[in-house]
Simulated assay, not measured.
Amino acid sequence: MATDKNNSHAGAEARIPAVEAALKDALVRGDRALSGVPPVLSHMLATSGQSLVSDAIVAKIRGMLGSLAEQLLAARSTAGRQPVEPREIDHLSDRLANDSAVLSYCYALAMEGQLAERLEQRTSIDPILSPLLQELIASDDASTAELAMSALAAQSRFVQNQRRMDLALTELPADLFHTVLKRWEVHDRSDPAIAPAIKRLKASYDEGAGRIGLLARLTASMRGGILAGLDLEHAGFAMFVSALARLSNQPRELAILACHEHQAVRLALSLRAAGLDAATIERQFVALEPAGRLPSDIGAIAPERASAMLSNSNTRNAG
């Protein structure tokens, strides 16, 4: 019996290089697809005639870019100044769309909204108030409960804004917030009202008070309990991707995109890097996409190797 066990263990170890090579190849293909998203989106924003699903995503992105442009131009306004013209909004929105980082972020948010909506329709996972968030709101720790309530309010605003195709400037991560301000500044250097408007916007900006910042702080406050965030049905989609991003050491946008049906390898490796076993990973796949295929032998890859593979992939995506 011992010999049989040893042979079985040796056979499993012998398969690991082949399994890892197959996963790497699939991850590279997935990365290649992700890297092609910004130019494809740029083309789609300028044209029409796409599929229904693509039209929905593009419409949300266009709406979010227009929302950002309108807020910037409104911030410039002072007493006696003319209202913002639709033509100005369109021109600035087009300028923002030329920035691949801004475009990719809006795409990730649109995907988050769409995936959360699908989960609600298919599995009744509430996009705003999940069981885990309810537990945190009821926490005996006052700071945790307060943080959870703030996250709940922010998530509610996000869902409403997605339905209206809006995006608040204050919800942008710090690097993108400053990128958007720079794009606006370059857009019309001749307008003397822009510089003071930018100064006011910077003074009122607080990254930690935005939805992404609140979710990041909330998941971090859970310490070892953060693994509960990887139970999609219990945590809800917003907390799930925030916990996944933290535990797999990835940008949250990539954690969102990993949940797309064509990014199964990234999702499996992310969950493995977070320490989940194959059976638990499979349950998350079933919740996200009943027909989704879990990469075979994912359990043969050590969490450290999964993390290293993702790290190399993230470097490629960042480049």
Score class of each variant (00 low, 15 high):
Asn7Ala: 13
Ala18Gly: 07
Glu20Cys: 01
Leu23Thr: 06
Leu23Trp: 00
Ala33Cys: 06
Val37Met: 13
Val40Trp: 06
Gly49Asp: 06
Ser51Val: 00
Ser54Asp: 15
Leu68Val: 02
Gln82Cys: 05
Pro86Cys: 05
His91Leu: 14
His91Asn: 10
Tyr105Ala: 08
Leu119Pro: 01
Gln121Pro: 02
Ser124Glu: 09
Ile125Gln: 11
Ser130Asp: 01
Leu136Asn: 03
Ile137His: 01
Asp140Thr: 05
Thr144Tyr: 01
Ala148Pro: 02
Met149Thr: 09
Ala153Gly: 10
Val159Phe: 05
Asn161Ala: 15
Met165Ser: 13
Ala174Glu: 14
Lys182Gly: 14
Glu185Gln: 15
Ile194Pro: 02
Ala195Lys: 12
Ala195Val: 15
Lys199Ala: 15
Glu207Phe: 06
Gly210Asp: 03
Thr219Met: 15
Ala220Tyr: 10
Ser221Pro: 05
Phe237Leu: 06
Val241Trp: 10
Ala243Asn: 10
Leu244Glu: 06
Ala245Gln: 04
Arg252Ser: 05
Leu254Asn: 12
Leu254Trp: 14
Ala274Phe: 02
Glu282Cys: 05
Gly292Gln: 10
Pro295Phe: 08
Ile301Ser: 00
Pro303Gln: 07
Glu304Leu: 01
Arg305Ala: 08
Ala306Met: 01
Ser307Asn: 02
Asn314Tyr: 05
Asn317Trp: 12
